[in-house]
Design a protein around this nucleic acid. Structure first.
Lengths: 133, 133
DNA sequence: GCTCAATATGTTATAACGTAACATTATTCA
DNA sequence: TGAATAATGTTACGTTATAACATATTGAGC
């Protein structure tokens, strides 16, 4: 019998951990509807918001999708390297670089709070087979 | 009498130039519907795509909105400093920093193609009045 | 001027992403 | 135990984006 989830956030994390690729809110909704057919988008978005605040999940702005954090606690925002071929996202910690970006914006008096750094391209695995296309 | 636009792209650029804040595709649609009541989203998105390819317009991923380029030609991607208070976006050229971000992702064999660098925070004007909130 | 190709735009419909507002349930802890 | 907080349910709607197919405009070469 399907296990009853007591906690939406745990359930979401479990689904995200099954995937290397970020998942859209509606993909997550569909996945969890196998347990609860009446689940609504609102519930998913609320749980995602909570997980984001906790740093357990990162939203990928340029994909409108969500990935679970692959690092432990990190206070610095990170760089997301997104493979446009296979969809895999590599989360890279680079606090010095984030600091340098902050410094650049501060030159004009800007006060940075949140950094969205998403690099699109090809991962090592996909890049090495590029010539076949 | 309202001027007949021969060219959607020109019309879009004109609207974007009237605003310091990025505009959503549907805001642009609404603006241009005063000239052409039957204008459809598709037309707007196609023109925005064309302008983006030409580098005349930049999409702000974390806002789902579009801003016209405030620089002349630039081959390097740029940094967008987004004020969450007033909505103004400052477009900053920093090719060295973009290069450093590329270098970071290349460490794992990634081949970067496009950089999304969007920093949220407060601009100088809004930041200086923060205490009033 | 004609015609072919390329580009841009029109039209209809629908998919995908996200939130508002208000109600109910669960958890915690004084 | 009961009051406060956090999480989830429910309904409805708003916003962002694209698919698929049709038509029109433009420009180059003949």
């Amino acid at each position: 019998m399907p296990r009853q989830r007591s906690n939406m956030q745990e359930a979401l994390l479990a689904v995200l951990r099954q995937h290397e690729q970020p998942q859209s809110a509606y993909a997550l909704l569909a996945a969890l509807r196998t347990d609860n057919a009446k689940l609504a988008p609102t519930t998913i978005y609320r749980a995602l918001d909570a997980l984001s605040e906790q740093g357990m999940v990162h939203r990928i702005e340029s994909l409108n999708a969500y990935a679970c954090c692959r690092h432990g606690d990190h206070t610095s925002d990170c760089i997301m390297a997104i493979c446009d071929d296979c969809g895999i996202v590599e989360e890279q910690l680079a606090p010095k670089l984030i600091g340098a970006i902050s410094a650049e914006t501060e030159k004009s008096g800007f006060a940075p709070k949140r950094h969205v750094v998403e690099v699109h391209g090809s991962c090592a695995a996909c890049g090495s087979t590029e010539d076949r296309k």
